[in-house]
Write a protein that binds this DNA or RNA. Structure first.
Lengths: 106, 106
DNA sequence: TCGCTATATCGTTATTTTACGATAAAACGC
DNA sequence: GCGTTTTATCGTAAAATAACGATATAGCGA
């Protein structure tokens, strides 16, 4: 007899989950602002972002973690501060994948 | 004297807000699955999606509303059912905008 | 008209997210 | 070592989201 459970298998694969996580990360105004700031001001530190955004330092740090976990941003310790920049490869992957996924969809 | 309030003006413009809303809408597994299904199966009805997804009918309908509000999907009444398909123009806009926004960012 | 089908919306609960102040952790100058 | 600076993390409260069953709406056929 068949022991395989009757699961619905209309699932997302690993790449699609990654894509989804990135879109979820960017689907918040503060995080899109952070992303834009890093795009326009490479190599800035957390304090620069705190100054620009209407949010507490803890909140900005939390949003940075979401962007880091999504792989869109990386921070390197620079003395007492942390220097952030976009993760070029992953951002390029994101842009390319969105192109593949959506461009010929309409 | 200066009566303008000292607002932080590092805001998102209308296009960026629209982009954000679209990414937010797609940043959920069920909605990305719905989008993919509509991409691969144009002109399907709500019931088809309910059959494929492990969610109740009400929940699928709610997700469809989010996608509609984001402008990614449109539904037209087709007899007793509703026929859904991707909003070609807006999806193309999304793909193009992501390209602009992210491609030369890394 | 009376069901029957398909779907949207309502009302509610559980979960997740967001935001903050307070507190740790780490690097540097003195 | 001792402050100072900068940032991450913790703990928590408020708000938003996700999911469901139940109900309303609308079209079509008998």
């Amino acid at each position: 007899m068949d022991t395989t459970p009757d699961l619905k298998t209309y699932d997302l694969d690993a790449d699609e989950l990654r894509l989804m996580q990135m879109m979820k990360a960017l689907g918040h105004p503060a995080r899109l602002q952070i992303f834009r700031y890093l795009r326009d001001n490479p190599q800035c530190i957390t304090g620069d972002l705190v100054e620009v955004l209407p949010l507490a330092q803890a909140t900005v740090s939390q949003h940075l973690k979401v962007l880091r976990d999504a792989g869109l941003v990386c921070g390197t310790i620079e003395g007492p501060a942390t220097c952030y920049c976009l993760s070029a490869d992953n951002v390029a992957w994101f842009a390319a994948r969105v192109g593949d996924w959506f461009r010929h969809a309409g």
